[in-house]
């Protein structure tokens, strides 16, 4: 545990140092940190603040503003499911319900077995092949029963 915390802090420090000299470095740092760790741990914020000469409150204010940043680690997989209009027009709400039942996780939830976290997203630019989703960064269009089963199989593997 102690070791893990040290690693996390070291990662945060390395990333922050790498971007320190750039214009507007905070979002790139937070994005890199989340890409690395799956979330933005609260305990790393002082390190980032210190490196960039900001207050902790400023950094926290930014982290809490953006939908992407997670305070806690997600499940092993992350499913972003589009909730916006083009997907609604193609039965997206029903697909979301089906997936929630199949995966055991609705929007903003992680399945009890830790397999997957489901997050809402408002448009993936796949509106001509709706309803759509993104599983661990991979795009999936025209979600039908077969695609739902494929997603379930992949996350529960």
């Amino acid at each position: 545990m102690q070791q893990a915390t040290t690693d996390v802090m070291a990662t945060a420090r390395t990333i922050a140092e790498r971007w320190k000299g750039a214009e507007g470095p905070l979002l790139p740092i937070l994005n890199a940190l989340q890409a690395e760790l799956g979330h933005v741990p609260r305990e790393t914020l002082p390190v980032i603040a210190e490196t960039l000469n900001l207050t902790r409150a400023e950094v926290y204010g930014v982290v809490s503003f953006y939908h992407d940043y997670r305070e806690h680690p997600p499940g092993r997989h992350v499913l972003k499911l589009c909730r916006a209009e083009a997907c609604q027009a193609m039965g997206g709400d029903a697909v979301a319900e089906r997936l929630a039942a199949r995966l055991g996780a609705g929007f903003h939830e992680t399945a009890a077995d830790g397999s997957v976290t489901v997050e809402p997203v408002y448009c993936l630019g796949l509106c001509a092949c709706a309803p759509s989703a993104m599983l661990d960064g991979r795009v999936i269009g025209r979600l039908d029963e077969a695609a739902i089963e494929e997603i379930a199989a992949e996350v529960q593997r």
Partner: peptide, 26 residues
């Protein structure tokens, strides 16, 4: 290229600029 962090309002040009500067996208 700079990547956003999931906020529709950051498409508004001044919120976008604040976001690029590393602030809340207001």
């Amino acid at each position: 290229v700079r990547i956003g962090a999931g906020a529709y309002v950051c498409g508004e040009e001044t919120a976008l600029l604040d976001s690029l500067e590393g602030k809340r996208g207001q």
